Simulated assay, not measured.
Amino acid sequence: MPLLSTLVDTFNDNVIGPDWGNAYGGVTETGGRARIPCIAGQYAGYQTAKTWTLAGSSAYLQVPLAAAANGGTVEVQTVFSIITTTAGTNLAFNINTVAGTMRCESNVAYFDGAATSLTYNATTHAWLRIRETGGNVLWDTSTDGSSWTNRRTLATPAWVTAATDTCALDLWSYRNNGTTNYAEFDNVNTSASSASTYFGSAALTADGAQTAAATRSIIIAAGVSAESGLAVASVQSAQASAALSGSSELSAQTDAVDTDDLTIQYSEPRGGWTVSQPWI
């Protein structure tokens, strides 16, 4: 049971996506928008298959350009509608730039005699939303796709809850006469504000380029009391004693006298000697 709120398209790839398989009348995806020609006596539109559910869900989008009157005398329409398998039964925002109005419609047989009619303002009504919740259908408008103003509330028609997997989104345009132009739709179920833009500064010289990267920062307040303490990491040191001992040996080397070639002779003492034994 795909809810309409899960249908998302930014139209940024300039290719009509598969969700719009029932598109008709020469529509294109141009400049990141769904562009719908507004041709005298012809209908054109972006339309999905009838496989979606509105009950308990919603659909919203941006209307950057409603088809201008351009010589039209009765109706030049730019329409955001949710349709079902019963022809002429639908919920819609219908902008008519000839009359300068926007109607919040719950049509049966292509008509709603109790529709809420507003003076159309391209800025005030830049974003449109239809939703079903709590037993009611609501038509809302927004300047930015974020803050919404309710324009009409109606008890949920029986077909809305019965049309499980049989609803379609139909974005169309038509003029009875005048010069051909076009309407544009954008950002189905996705707000332009959901994309964040960050700016960075960079100093550039004639000899080179520098890329600036954006930096996010968070400032956190902290209170410090007079009794706050600072923790100091301790440093452990160890001392060890060591006893050193050493021993040494001294040796003396004498040159031995070779007595092998000496002959000792014994004789009587000579004068001037004091003679003792054994010479006495």
Rank of each mutant, 00 (worst) to 15 (best):
V137G: 01
D144L: 06
A192M: 13
T141M: 03
R151S: 10
A192N: 12
A192T: 14
T161A: 15
A192E: 11
A213I: 05
A168D: 00
G178T: 10
T166H: 02
R151K: 12
V188D: 00
G134I: 00
T141V: 13
N176F: 08
P157T: 05
Q210K: 10
N136H: 13
Y174H: 10
Q210M: 05
L204Y: 12
Y198Q: 09
S173W: 01
E132C: 04
R131H: 13
N189Q: 07
A192R: 15
T211Q: 13
T153Y: 01
N136I: 03
N189D: 08
N177Q: 07
A202T: 11
R152S: 12
G135C: 06
S142V: 06
G208P: 07
Y182M: 03
G178R: 05
Y182I: 01
C167N: 12
D165S: 15
D144P: 05
T133H: 06
R131D: 06
N181A: 13
W139Q: 00
T180Y: 09
T133M: 09
A183K: 00
W172I: 08
A158C: 05
S193C: 10
T161R: 06
D144A: 06
V188K: 00
V188Y: 05
A206N: 07
A162K: 11
E184F: 03
Y198A: 11
C167E: 13
W139Y: 09
T141G: 04
D186G: 01
A195I: 07
D140E: 15
T153R: 11
S173I: 01
D207P: 02
T164F: 06
T215Y: 09
T149W: 13
Y174P: 00
R151Y: 15
L169H: 02
A203S: 14
E184I: 01
A214F: 09
T143W: 00
T141Y: 10
T205F: 10
S147Q: 15
F199K: 11
S173K: 02
A214V: 12
I130S: 01
R129F: 04
F199Q: 05
N187Q: 10
A163T: 11
N177T: 14
A195S: 06
D140N: 09
G200R: 04
T133D: 07
T180G: 14
N181C: 03
T166P: 05
I130M: 03
R129L: 14
V188R: 00
P157C: 12
W159F: 12
S147W: 09
R175P: 01
G145L: 04
D165E: 15
T164L: 12
V137C: 09
A214I: 08
A209R: 07
W139I: 05
W148N: 10
G178M: 04
R151I: 06
